[in-house]
Nucleic acid binder design. Sequence first.
DNA 1: CTTGAGCCTGTACCTACTACAGGCGTTAAA
DNA 2: TTTAACGCCTGTAGTAGGTACAGGCTCAAG
Lengths: 130, 130
Amino acid sequence: MTRGELAKRTGCNIETVRYYEKIGLPPDPPRTQKGYRVYDRHHEQTLRFIMRARELGFTIEDVRGLLSLVDGGNYTCGEIRDKTLAHLKAVRERIADLQRLEQTLSKTVADCAGGDAPQCPVVDALIKEA
Amino acid sequence: MTRGELAKRTGCNIETVRYYEKIGLPPDPPRTQKGYRVYDRHHEQTLRFIMRARELGFTIEDVRGLLSLVDGGNYTCGEIRDKTLAHLKAVRERIADLQRLEQTLSKTVADCAGGDAPQCPVVDALIKEA
DNA sequence: CTTGAGCCTGTACCTACTACAGGCGTTAAA
DNA sequence: TTTAACGCCTGTAGTAGGTACAGGCTCAAG
């Protein structure tokens, strides 16, 4: 199948397919005599793997690591679990950061009088003369 | 004060000071005859404002809007509150996204046997033959 | 007068894509 | 058979929000 067909079947942006190839994520597809890429089921499966891993928030480098384990065929559950737990830890830290942020923002904005008042606690918090 | 001194006083990266100037966030500082930037208290205050707004997760464009309101001097609490609430909404959506992610990841990894097992539910979820 | 620090500019790099320009190739209708 | 429209090819630029480095001046201390 062509790059466009692959993109359509997977829902991946057609340019992103080329991008992944450029950074060496999926195996390079063979080409026709005129240089057109030709994909098969295995390429499609690999692309779906990449897309799902990205949806789960794994970085490109994480995905590269997962792919090399899985494509190598000799991964263990322990290895994958370690990578997943490391990623999960990062996600939880990011959530905690954002929750602190959310608290700060909502507490500050709760004091807003609103309307045409020329004073604003949000601005005060931002200026906060040292 | 010089750019280095400003950076040191505020804790801002020295290159970031120049970056903010380049994108037109703070007012351009005057220069010495030899081209050195000269900052005063007002520049420092503006930079701190930018840094605090960034810490609160406002985008650069948000900060630009806040600065123009605040530097203009004729902002109202209502205007600022609207911008803050819009930002807060974005933060909450991001948190919700990450929490869904966290749920998916932690549920999946919970089924891992670990160790040398050649099967892994995380990999299964990623491959998930359509 | 020299040496080292600090400033200047421009530019490249980072993540993870996305989009576009200009040029071929392919395919379907007229 | 021709031609129009679409799809693919490549390279490059742009996004956010910085960070870093190279090469060249300038400045202050000893």
